[in-house]
């Protein structure tokens, strides 16, 4: 009899141990009709940034706002909204900040192309300078320069003797 009770207790204990796990899994349980739908949801919440905890995406963040926005994304995915529509919905409210794939604007274009522009202009300036220098070398000597050259050579000859 004693043995039996112990067994029963073990069973209850096992159930209790499993309980918190199942509760945790239920916090953010979303139901999907298809794998494509689920993939879309997962992709969206990875690409959208939480406005509250800025270095986390919606998927990682535990902030209540991130939870609300996840729910929003879920609802929109269920409504069959396109990815672009969902992103636009968020941008209209939270700005370009919310997406990890910011669109091309003048500001982001400077960031993308600025370094290449600087590199190319530096290369152009360098080649121009080098060209100018070599062009100087190929110029024929002026009269004054010829005189100076001759006097230097004469001096040199004298020293050599």
């Amino acid at each position: 009899m004693n043995h039996l009770i112990c067994r029963r207790h073990c069973w209850i204990l096992c159930c209790l141990l499993m309980l918190p796990v199942s509760v945790l899994a239920n916090i953010d349980a979303y139901q999907f009709d298809s794998i494509a739908e689920e993939d879309k949801f997962k992709k969206m919440i990875k690409e959208l940034r939480c406005p509250k905890c800025q270095n986390q995406n919606l998927s990682d963040s535990n902030a209540p706002l991130a939870k609300d926005l996840r729910q929003k994304v879920y609802n929109m995915v269920k409504q069959g909204k396109a990815e672009q529509e969902i992103t636009q919905y968020m941008i209209d409210r939270y700005g370009n900040f919310i997406t990890y794939r910011p669109p091309m604007t003048i500001g982001t274009m400077i960031l993308w192309f600025g370094p290449f522009f600087l590199l190319i202009s530096a290369l152009i300036m360098m080649t121009m300078r080098i060209k100018n220098k070599t062009a100087d070398l190929n110029q024929p000597l002026t009269e004054e320069e010829k005189h100076r050259l001759q006097s230097i050579m004469k001096q040199h000859d004298k020293e050599a003797q």
């Binding site: 406005p51 509250k52 209540p64 706002l65 609300d68 926005l69 929003k72 409210r93 939270y94 700005g95």
Partner: peptide, 13 residues
């Protein structure tokens, strides 16, 4: 209660 107006306004805190 649900924070929907908050989302529409872009409230983040």
């Amino acid at each position: 209660e649900a924070g929907q107006l908050g989302i529409d306004l872009g409230v983040y805190g």
